[in-house]
């Protein structure tokens, strides 16, 4: 299947405005053909409604703050769109990465290769 038929929602769970990480990831995903919808700093409610309204195939969360904020967003997305895959990147320390992985979220911390992130997007959206 063609990546261009797949839509990825990207959002920041915190109110920290550093944009370097998510924009690089978005660029790599777009270069690979995906349609990327970026909603920036978004509350849990914003993330859930965008995941539903935009009929996305994957959610990417940039986590720059406390892990509990991300967990709240993930759990509510999982209620609203059961089975929708989610992956996360950002300043996520090892103990927090384990918490996210326990919820079925794939974690790409700093130092991850873009090629691995694109691979994950293809695998999680079923184009590969």
């Amino acid at each position: 299947m063609d990546n261009s038929q797949k839509r990825i929602l990207m959002a920041k769970t915190g109110l920290d405005g550093h944009w370097r990480g998510p924009t690089i990831v978005a660029r790599a995903l777009r270069d690979a053909g995906f349609e990327v919808i970026m909603i920036g700093m978004a509350s849990t409610d914003d993330i859930v409604s965008a995941a539903v309204d935009e009929d996305v195939d994957l959610v990417g969360l940039n986590v720059g703050g406390h892990i509990d904020v991300a967990i709240r967003a993930i759990e509510q997305v999982q209620v609203a769109r059961p089975g929708l895959p989610i992956f996360a990147g950002g300043t996520i320390p090892p103990h927090a990465a384990k918490q996210l992985e326990a919820l079925g979220v794939e974690v790409y911390p700093p130092g991850s290769q873009l090629v691995d992130i694109v691979d994950a997007a293809e695998r999680l959206t079923g184009t590969r």
């Binding site: 109110l15 509350s43 892990i67 509990d68 904020v69």
Partner: peptide, 14 residues
């Protein structure tokens, strides 16, 4: 502020 309440665990992190 509602945007802060929505991220209350983040408060004081940095």
């Amino acid at each position: 502020h509602p945007d802060v309440i929505a991220r209350r665990e983040d408060v004081g992190l940095t």
